[in-house]
Design a binder for these strands. Structure first.
Lengths: 216, 216
DNA sequence: TCATCTATTGACTCATAGTTCAAACTTCTG
DNA sequence: CAGAAGTTTGAACTATGAGTCAATAGATGA
């Protein structure tokens, strides 16, 4: 068999099995991360597979050994990135014991840090869904919804206990997401120290949206 | 002469002159508005000139009668849109007599309303600058800077009089711009009444960023 | 070491989108 | 109305990027 294009995620009853399969998995991750990064930086349509291949130091054909098409690569990039991202936020929230204010601040920090430090520019995935084909467009919107539910739960908890003062929850959520989605842009080019400071300040600022200023 | 591709903006010592020239100007505006709208919706790379031509009910070749290339069309779209936009905000601010809080709220409302109602989706121009070629990328950044200066002046005025409480001015500005740039997305599909309400609520929410909640 | 499975290459095809242009059509103007 | 000027068209041409594939290089295991 020359090509396989198996399902990407390791779900189902398949253990990491042989060394060669684990190696394949790592290669796929490498490709997905790079692709997501570039799609995030410049949009889906503007990035050619040759561009992606070049950054990976391989040729275009090699990518087709792992993915049957650009669209499938795009889909996989959204899915794997989105799944890891969301589950990390969910775990953080599940393990957190603090007040709504503390919870929200932790969520914000984690979310921004992942975006800025680990998948630089990858949150750009969320920027112009119109740039993506129909199918992927829908997935991105779904991913957005999942993140929104997480944050919204905490915000509404804070509103009901009176700790937050939010004139319009929907607007506040939208502003929060919009701001976080552009954080990688603002932080690109900063050194580690400045980046950490910027993340901290951004979290401070977004807490203002729920009426939870530095006075608290 | 078959093609001309003259400068687009009406600056310099050229009155609107003949009727035919005015007609030409209107046609150019029509093209620019449509193109900006589509670039905003789906990004620069994802929109072909045939797409633009189709929405205008002409053929691709016709666009080349007015613009020598896609890139020039993109540049002109950014420039004209940006110039009109900025000067309207500048005029509003120059004529305004109120407190920093009232000024900022007016600016926000006007900015969002222009984005949402007059150039639907055109603020998307600002969304993925990486999607554009170098040259246009730089122009978009410059345009952003001009808008930023306007808003920042008002915010800093409010901070110095003590009316605003802003932990980090840079972060606050970034969040403000990010949120406004996505407003057209949120408002697409709303009827006029719902749209006006959404604009109002968004302005409320962004006032929170400068510690100027509904209590004031 | 040989045989087999895996991974990569580079040259090729095909479709799309940017660009040119001569010819046809429309609108002005004397 | 005739001719000139302005505008639009549709059919090329070209460049780019998606996708294919046979040949080759590299691992792996007996």
């Amino acid at each position: 068999m020359t090509t396989q294009h198996q399902t990407v995620d390791g779900s189902g009853p398949r253990p990491p099995s042989s060394r060669v399969e684990r190696k394949r998995g790592r290669r796929i991750q490498e490709i997905l991360t790079t692709a997501a990064e570039m799609f995030g930086e410049r949009g889906y349509a503007a990035v050619s597979l040759e561009d992606v291949a070049e950054r990976l130091d391989v040729t275009k054909g090699s990518l087709y050994y792992y993915f049957p098409s650009k669209d499938e690569l795009g889909t996989a990039a959204i899915e794997t990135l989105g799944n890891e991202w969301t589950s990390r936020l969910e775990n953080l929230l599940a393990a957190h014991e603090g007040s709504p204010g503390e919870k929200l601040r932790s969520l914000l920090r984690e979310h921004i840090a992942i975006a800025v430090c680990e998948y630089p520019a990858a949150l750009g995935l969320f920027l112009v869904p119109g740039d993506w084909p129909e199918d992927q467009h829908a997935r991105i919107k779904e991913l957005r919804r999942r993140h929104d539910r997480l944050f919204r739960r905490v915000v509404e908890e804070g509103v009901s206990t009176g700790e937050f003062r939010v004139p319009h929850v929907d607007s506040a959520m939208q502003c929060m997401h919009a701001s976080m989605s552009q954080a990688p842009l603002w932080c690109s080019g900063l050194d580690a120290a400045a980046r950490d400071r910027a993340i901290e300040q951004l979290a401070d600022t977004l807490m203002m949206l729920v009426g939870h200023g530095p006075g608290h």
